[in-house]
Amino acid sequence: MLGLVPFSAYVVLFLALPTALAVGSGFLDAEGAPTLANLSALGDPVVLNTFGNSMLLSAVTAVVGAVVGALVCYALLGSRSDGRLRSTVDAISGVLAQFGGVMLAFAFTATIGVQGIVTVLLADVWGVDIFAEGVWLYDLPGLFLPYIYFQVPLMVITFLPALEALKPQWAEANATLGGTRATFWLRIGFPVLAPSFLGSLLLLFANAFSSYATAAVLASQGSQIVPLQIRAALTSETVLGRENLAGVLALGMILVMAAVMALYSVLQSRASRWQR
C-alpha cells in the first residue's frame, strides 16, 4: 500500500485541498469565522441571473453541438477507423475541442468582430449591419457561436466510439426481415444510440458550463456567466457587497456539475449494455 502514497498525497494536495478550500471559503465570513450567511448569495437575483445565463448558454450550445456533431459522426460511419480521413477528423476535433480557449476568441474577433471579415463583407456586399443594435460579440450573445465551435468537435470525439456499437449484423437482420433504411434507424439505430447521445449531450453541457478562457478573452469586462463572475469576485474585494462570493459560486458550480455528471454515469452504464 505504501506505493500508493505519492500519488494519493499529490491528488489530496492539488485536487482535494484546492476544491475544499474553494468551497470552504464560501462558509467563512470576513474575519474567517464559520458562517452560513454567504449562502444567501445563491438566492441573489444577480447571481441567479448569471447561473441562468450559464445554463442557457450551455444548454443551447450543447444541443446544437450534439446534433451537428452526431451528423458528422454519421457521415464518418463506415470509414476505416485507422484510415486517413478518420485520423485527420480526430486530430482536428481534438485541437478545436481542447486547445481552443484564447485562440477562439481571436478567431471570432477576426470573423465577426467590428472589423471582422464576415462583418465587413456583409456590410459591403449586402448592406447588412450585424451590429445595428450594438456590438454583441463581447457580451453573452457573442459567446454562442464560439462555444458551438468547440462543442461540435467534442461531440465528434465522444460520440464516434458509441456509433461503433452499431453492429453490421443488425443492419443485415433488418434487411433480411424486409426493413428499410428508415426502419433500421427508427427501430434499431436511434433506440440503441439514445443513451450514448444523451450522455454526450450532458458532457457537452458540463464542458460549456465550466469553460472560462474564451469568455474571459472576449468579454474582458463584466460577469455575464458564472466563471466570469468568479473572476470578478477574485479580482475585486467585494462584488454585490458580499464577502467570499467566489467560494459560494464555486459551490453552486460544483452542485450543477455533480448533478450533470451523476446523470451522465447513469446513462453511460445504460449505453454500455450495447457495447460488449
Binding site: L4, V11, L13, F14, L15, L17, P18, T19, A20, L21, A22, V23, G24, S25, A206, F209, S210, Y212, P227, I230, R231, L234, A246, G247, A250, M253, I254, M257, A258, M261
Partner: peptide, 27 residues
C-alpha cells in the same frame, strides 16, 4: 482499487479549473 482510481482521475472533469484556481491561490 481500479474503479476508485478511475473515479479520482475523472474528477477534474466535474471540478472546473475556475473552481480549483480559487483554492490553488492558497495552496
Amino acid at each position: 482499487l481500479m474503479p476508485v482510481l478511475e473515479f479520482v482521475c475523472l474528477l477534474p472533469i466535474t471540478i472546473p479549473a475556475i473552481v480549483l484556481v480559487i483554492g490553488l491561490a492558497t495552496v
